[in-house]
């Protein structure tokens, strides 16, 4: 019985999310009185691996096999199953991001392990293992029992605080037998967004909607985001109109994000929009309609004309920053 955390890397680096997974797994393993190991697939320098040790993991298993250089859910599921079996893992933890969503269901069938997706709370009880999962786009939690011997949890971003807990790390080869593990799909082209802060990584997101009236009015939105070291986002009508790129669309059918602070400017807050941002810690709304549903979800709000309010907000922020 042990906890295995799959920590994905991005071109050899871990993100805050990876550390959140470790913090969560270490805490859970303590409660379960068992050990934690992290699994890292791909080329990651020793120094970077040690970063994970800052959050309390003592054993890191690495797999640098060439067959695993392309992310392929079918081969990865087979590889991770080998490691989980060897480790006698009773819990497998991964992120609830694109990667985790692609892997967890395959692992579930392979290992006959129940999955809880989008976990944002510690388990209610360990025996039986009962945990809350997000359902109905954030409108309810399903209190779910996972009765299988092996369980898989995918963890929602920004749900667990980082907890420094430095440990001496040992790094071992995961010993994956890669014979027969060759991806059947071939990658033709890779396009990476390296120049700007990713929406899903941003701690602060400044998002705007149709209330901005025209795409020419985005100047202060971008300025606000850059002052706050945040990313820009938008509502669906705005991306449908082509005012902003599709990558910025947050909402049920767009990106689902959970930043620390989410500014919703000129966004009324339809259910579909809130479904994508309800995990945000603070929602700040600026809208000229005081009946707009966004104010029900917001902690701070201003009822008024964004084009008049934004320049003053930008000035106030500049002043606050230089103070």
């Amino acid at each position: 019985m042990s906890v295995l955390v799959y920590t994905e890397n991005w071109d050899g680096s871990f993100k805050k999310l990876s550390c959140e997974l470790i913090s969560f797994a270490v805490k859970l393993a303590e409660e379960m009185q068992t050990d934690v190991a992290a699994l890292s697939i791909g080329n990651v320098e020793a120094e970077e691996l040690e970063k994970l040790g800052q959050y309390g993991v003592k054993r890191i298993l690495t797999a640098q096999n060439g067959e695993l250089s392309q992310f392929d859910p079918q081969t990865y599921a087979k590889a991770i199953t080998q490691v989980a079996d060897k480790e006698q893992a009773s819990l497998i933890v991964m992120a609830d991001n694109n990667t985790g969503k692609a892997l967890a269901p395959r692992l579930s069938v392979r290992m006959k392990a129940a999955v809880a997706s989008g976990v944002s709370h510690m388990p209610d009880t360990l025996s039986p293992f009962v945990i809350k999962t997000k359902t109905f786009s954030g409108n309810a939690f399903a209190v779910t029992e996972l009765p299988t011997d092996v369980k898989i949890l995918t963890i929602a971003q920004n749900s667990f605080d980082l907890k420094k807990n430095p440990a001496e790390v040992t790094v071992e080869d995961a010993g994956i037998d890669t014979s027969g593990l060759r991806p059947k799909a071939a990658v033709k082209e890779v396009e990476k967004q390296t120049d700007k802060l990713l929406l899903t990584d941003a701690e602060i997101v400044v998002s705007a909607g149709r209330g901005m009236k025209t795409p020419e009015n985005w100047g202060p939105i971008e300025e606000l985001a850059s002052l706050l070291n945040g990313a820009t986002a938008c509502s669906r009508p705005v991306s449908d109109e082509g005012w902003r790129p599709h990558e910025e669309h947050t909402g049920q059918t767009g990106k689902i994000i959970a930043p620390n602070v989410y500014f919703a400017i000129g966004i009324s807050g339809a259910t579909q929009h809130l479904a994508g941002v309800s995990g945000s810690k603070y929602i700040i709304a600026i809208n000229n309609d005081k009946e707009a549903p966004i104010f029900d979800a917001a902690q701070y709000g201003i009822v008024g004309d964004a084009s008049r309010i934004l320049p003053r907000l930008v000035d106030a922020l500049k002043k606050a920053k230089s103070a």
Binding site: S108, K112, A113, A114, V115, A116, V130, K132, T135, G138, N139, A140, F141, A142, V143, T144, E145, L146, P147, T148, S278, I284, A285, F295, D296, A297, A298, Q299, Y300, G301, I302, V303, G304, D305, R308, I309, R312, L313, A316, L317, A320
Partner: peptide
């Protein structure tokens, strides 16, 4: 493989605190 025992509503969010539109500087301070 799983069993949903019950559904739970999310924690209600505290009521929105409104800032005077004539004084947006207060938002930065909050």
């Amino acid at each position: 493989l799983t069993r949903v025992k019950e559904f739970e509503p999310p924690q209600p969010r505290p009521a929105c605190k409104f800032v005077d539109p004539e004084n947006p500087e207060q938002l930065v301070e909050l």
